[in-house]
């Protein structure tokens, strides 16, 4: 049995997934830790946790692919790939009919056009600022004085969404405060917040061929308010895997498995190995 792992070091959380190929491919375990300030440590913790969860020794793992913004910091990793390739790969595996991936993470959002084998055909990402990303939602939750887990369900109750003047992560605060001062209901404000981001994300996604099925990945996929708002703006249902949050790590682990059985298709990529973690 071949065992491989993918570790996705995101700006907020680090995810690790352990997968095996024994004729069929299975997910053995998942692990999630907060990234914090020490990126390298976070990767190690997630990986160790995932090994423990799978009941295996680190030495049993044949290949590790790192992804996410902190991928070059993974000292024990054998190779790195961008999260764009990994999300596409993961979504192609878990939801094979996927042709478009909308990934919303802590600091960026992206739309990926995916081929029949989970390969990236095209992609677009938000520009450098964090407007319209997970960070924006976190700020909104903070201003409202509620937890991030609550904003989604609460926003679903809103019937009269407010119109936000901005999706800027900094200015949203004053926008929300002024609505609160006007006596608007929290649920309507949050509904407006989610819709504003959904519109921005969809206009980004329209730059690629926005073909069905559309799969949503990334941490924000756990927010039912965001899923609903996106579905409303897109006027169609999204596929959400229970592993949406782990999609990058799943994709990375799949690449790692391919590496083990030599079916890996990335010729030039041989040159990208950086096991020292120094970059």
């Amino acid at each position: 049995m071949r065992i491989a792992s993918g570790v996705d070091v995101g700006s907020t959380q680090t995810k690790a997934v352990m997968m095996s190929d024994n004729g069929g491919i299975n997910i053995l375990a998942r692990a999630l830790v907060d990234t914090g300030a020490n990126v390298q440590r976070a990767a190690e913790r997630a990986f160790d946790k995932c090994c423990a969860e799978a009941g295996i020794q680190t030495g049993d793992v044949g290949f590790v692919v790192g992804t996410g913004y902190g991928r070059y910091k993974i000292a024990f990793g054998n190779a790195q790939m961008t999260e764009i390739s990994c999300h596409a790969k993961g979504a192609g595996f878990l939801c094979p009919s996927t042709r478009t991936v909308i990934d919303m993470g802590g600091q960026d959002s992206k739309a990926i056009s995916v081929g029949a084998n989970g390969e990236v055909l095209d992609f677009v990402m938000n520009d450098k600022c964090a407007a319209g990303t997970g960070r924006f939602l976190a700020n909104a939750a903070e201003v409202m004085g509620i937890s991030l887990d609550e904003i989604g369900p609460l926003s679903l109750r809103g019937k009269y969404p407010v119109k936000l003047a901005t999706v800027c992560t900094v200015f949203v605060e004053s926008d929300i405060l002024s609505y609160l001062a006007q006596g608007k209901k929290g649920e309507d404000i949050l509904n407006g917040v989610h819709l504003a981001i959904a519109k921005r994300t969809v206009s980004l996604a329209r730059r690629i061929n926005l073909e069905p099925e559309i799969t949503m990945t990334g941490g924000v996929a756990r927010n039912c308010g965001m899923v609903h708002a996106l579905e409303e703006v897109l006027a169609r249902k999204l596929q959400i895997s229970p592993d949406a949050h782990f999609m990058g790590a799943v994709g990375a682990a799949l690449f790692a498995l391919e590496k083990l059985d030599q079916s890996f298709e990335f010729g030039t990529w041989k040159g990208q190995h950086a096991t020292s973690g120094g970059h």
């Binding site: 790939m81 764009i84 390969e119 990236v120 298709e265 990335f266 010729g267 030039t268 990529w269």
Partner: peptide, 28 residues
């Protein structure tokens, strides 16, 4: 001030990963 190294690199790497894949598929 407008150059974000990590983000630029990420996009460039992703672009080549995709090209790599399509080249390999075409070869196959």
């Amino acid at each position: 001030r407008y150059f974000a190294e990590a983000q630029t690199k990420n996009r460039i790497d992703a672009f080549f990963e995709a090209l790599e894949h399509s080249k390999a598929t075409a070869l196959r």
